[in-house]
Every structure is written in C-alpha cells, then in structure tokens.
Nucleic acid binder design. Structure first.
Lengths: 146, 146
DNA sequence: TGAAAATAGTTGCATAGCTAACTATATGTC
DNA sequence: GACATATAGTTAGCTATGCAACTATTTTCA
C-alpha cells in the first residue's frame, strides 16, 4: 500500500485517540488528587447542568453526544452519589428532569479551577487562533457526519 | 460564574467528545454495513500491525495510547477471531509478539477503502492547512501532558 | 376517536476503559 | 551470586459505551 493511503487513517488516529485521551486522563487524575471521587464523564454531565439545571435526559444526550442508555446509567450513578435527582415532568409523563442537588452545586466550585488549570496546562504554547481553528474544524467534522 | 470561566471546559468538551465520537460511530457503522464484524478499537490495533507486524503489547500500548489491560483484552478478542496470534519472543520470555494472520491481512484491503471514505466524508469542506493545524495542535496538547 | 407513528426512558448483552494488585522474567549493583 | 529494581503481561473490579429490543406515554391524522 502507498503511504498516501494511510494519511486519513493517521488523522483518524490523531483526532480520535491521542489528545482527547491525554486530556481526559489528566483531568481524571487531577480530580482524584484533589480527593474528588467523580469520573470525567459524570463531571461532563454536571458541567451541562451547571450551565442549565433540570435538563431532561434526551437533552443531555444531545448536548454530550452520548446515546440514551449511556445517559440513563450515568444518571443512575450520579443519583447514587446524591449529586442529581430525577424529577418527573408535570406536563409530560415520559420525561425525567435531571436536577442538581446542593452537593453538586458545591462541587462546581471545587472542580472549576481544576478543569481550568488542566486545560491551561494542555493548551500551553498554543495561541488563540489555532484553538479557534481546531474548534471550528471539529465542529465541521461533527456536522459532516450528523 | 462568569462565562469566561467556562471557555476551557467548552474546549474540553469539543476536543474530547464531539468529533471523535461522531467519527468513531460512523466508521463502526460503515464497517458493520459492509458485513465486517470488527470494532474500531480492534481495527486500530490491526492498523498499527499493518504498518509494522509483530509488535509487542507494550509497543501497541504506546502507539495506541491505551493502557496494558486494555491491550491484553483487545488482543484476547482479536485472537478469538483468529486475526492475530501471540508469539513468545525468543530473546525475552516476558514479551509477546502480536502477529497478523492471513485473515487479518485480507481484512486490510476490505477496510482501507471504508476508512478512507469515512475520513473523506468527515473532512468534507475542510482544507489541507486547517487539517494540518488540527494535527499539530492535538499533537502539542498530547506533548504538554505527557 | 382510535390506530399508527413518534418520543422518552430502561434493560440486557457485549466490548472497552482505568486502577490496583498480581506473576514472571530480566537487569543492575553491591 | 544474590537481592533490589524495572519491565512485560495478566487478572479482578468498577465505570462507561454502543446496539437492539423493550415499556410507557404522547402526538398525528385518517
């Protein structure tokens, strides 16, 4: 096979594995070192609820790019840890609203600095315009496939 | 919290979730539609072996950014499907060399077009320089954290 | 109004991820 | 040569992911 044929595969490798894995692991490690018993996946759910509380599960699917069973189980685990509570919607009985507890609101203050520090570390030496390009390209990749 | 405080988190969200999930799912779907019973994770192992056969497991860890137990199980599953074979190294008895079978070599031809088509679809409307920026930024993110 | 289609969420099953603890072999040093 | 240390790989336990099939509601429309 020519080298050319592997260019795309290599890019797949880059987009899919490397950076995201490294960032995720570092963030997880930094949470743990701060004594916070929370996974980055759980954090990413809380992150969206901190921006807008009491989203339903489908909305969390859309915003986190996960499927419904994944959200069901993440919410199960977050409920076990008393960080969120499922509240049945009054207008549509199919819907669960996922609402933050006080404990989760407290967690926001504990994690936001860790997340910012981690991303600053990850983005060291990369300038604003490059970051902008990455965001736009990844957004377009996503749009191309959905 | 100010909007500013969430900029980094948002970028994390973008790098970590969106594009990579979308590409992975599409690739998986395209494999399945072609009747290929293989996961993208398994494919990514084969991808490295097609470039260089008979790597040991630790080397596969390094090249795929996975940890050792993950590789152990991926190789377990690939062996079950008769796509690779563990060969004990003759010079160092701690080491397994992971070598392709004929079936896996055949699979290369069946999957390479699917992978290329998928990446072309994903990268539609994105020009070469932008792709270059993304690759370099993600590489630097990785380097910053390792 | 009543049957079909759409939507929200759950459950079962398989794969994959991470950490920690473990075995086995190899290396380095006194 | 022997003991400490490093390295390769495996196992166990938990969380997370994806798909398919399922239940329960709501909406659509003939």
């Amino acid at each position: 096979m020519s080298n050319n044929q592997f260019k795309r595969g290599e890019l797949y490798s880059v987009i899919n594995g490397m950076a995201s894995t490294a960032v995720a692991r570092r963030l997880q490690k930094n949470f743990r070192q701060a004594g916070l018993d929370i996974t980055i996946e759980q954090w990413s759910i809380l992150y969206h609820l901190w921006k807008e509380d009491c989203l339903n599960q489908q909305e969390l699917c859309n915003r986190t790019f996960r499927d419904k069973p994944s959200i069901t189980r993440l919410i199960d685990n977050l409920e076990k840890q008393k960080l969120v509570k499922r509240m049945p919607s009054k207008t549509d009985r199919r819907i669960n609203l996922v609402c933050l507890t006080d404990a989760a609101r407290e967690l926001q203050h504990q994690t936001i600095d860790i997340a910012n520090d981690t991303m600053n570390e990850a983005l060291q030496g990369i300038d604003r315009e490059e970051i902008e390009v990455v965001k736009q390209v990844l957004q377009r990749v996503y749009d191309n496939l959905t």
